[in-house]
């Protein structure tokens, strides 16, 4: 439990309380209790002719699940306003995670395990997609940050990019005396070393078609026709390109991990909006064809 902090001090100094374990898993216990009640109700209620969304239990579970979904969606608004206390953002996220998992249980029981090719199962599938993508998000949040900081070392993303630019400047300068053919090869590194880009490129670490890599391999081929003076220049150039390759790998890995840390949101958020639309259609259709 949180100690009362004196002015100017942190409460619970030295103890980091993540959103998952917030207040001794308070929300995990509450969500667990909700699941236990839901399962007990499912087993005790004798819905005729079989468990379904249209029984008393089914409507109760459905209402709870729908309200929970709406509340869970509010995290999108809530996270933009940071407050403290019982309803701090951390508490809210903790509740979001565990109640989000509980929704899966409640909604499944609401369905009575009746599935088909209809709007109702579409809503269910979208809910599963949202929950599973959220689970994926929690997993990457738990696993990847350590790799992110290990890869980054003491630098920041800005510094990594500055390093790349500095190397580019050095390469540009060092290439000035080179012949046209050699200069064109060096230009490949300068022009074609993409960092970042589309989703797939970020997720996969995006090394495909790297100009720097091509320049390095071409440069080795050029050594055969080079004069002694040129060979010296090429040695210098190759060293620079090697350094750039290392810097590129680091920044790409950095962007890759960051992409994995955020890609689930690209599913979680749109699927949530789709889910709310599907729930609306689900509820309306049931009452229209009452």
């Amino acid at each position: 439990m949180a100690k009362t902090a004196k002015t100017g001090e942190r409460s619970n100094p030295g103890q980091h309380d993540g959103f998952l374990g917030y207040r001794n898993f308070r929300w995990a216990w509450r969500a667990g209790a909700l699941c236990v009640i839901a399962i007990a109700g499912y087993l005790l209620m004798d819905a005729e002719p079989r468990p379904n969304g249209g029984s008393v239990y089914g409507y109760a579970a459905g209402t709870i699940a729908a309200l929970l979904v709406l509340w869970l969606t509010l995290l999108g608004l809530r996270k933009r306003a940071i407050t403290s206390g019982n309803w701090s953002l951390k508490a809210w996220v903790s509740a979001h995670v565990y109640l989000g998992l509980a929704v899966m249980v409640v909604a499944t029981l609401h369905s009575g395990f009746q599935f088909g090719w209809n709007i109702h199962t579409l809503a269910y599938a979208l809910m599963v997609l949202v929950v599973v993508s959220g689970l994926f998000g929690i997993t990457v949040y738990a696993l990847l940050p350590r790799y992110l900081s290990r890869n980054r070392g003491e630098t920041t993303q800005k510094q990594m990019l500055e390093t790349l630019k500095a190397l580019d400047r050095q390469i540009n300068e060092a290439a000035q005396p080179l012949s046209e053919v050699q200069a064109r090869v060096v230009q490949m590194s300068l022009d074609g070393s993409r960092v970042g880009g589309g989703l797939w490129r970020r997720l996969s670490g995006g090394r495909g078609g790297c100009g720097n890599q091509r320049a390095l391999s071409r440069l080795r081929g050029l050594r055969r026709q080079a004069t002694d003076v040129e060979l010296q220049m090429l040695d210098r150039m190759e060293e620079l390109l090697q350094r750039k390759a290392v810097a590129l790998a680091q920044v790409r890995r950095h962007l890759q991990i960051r992409a994995w840390l955020s890609v689930w949101l690209a599913v979680h958020v749109p699927a949530t909006i789709a889910l709310i639309a599907a729930i609306t259609a689900h509820v309306f259709s049931v009452f229209i064809y009452w």
Partner: peptide
Amino acid sequence: SSGVPAGGVIPKARIFGRRRIA
């Protein structure tokens, strides 16, 4: 002139932004 744009990295493709998909 380099693959690194002035602002940092090449921006993500925005065609499939979260908001738009949603």
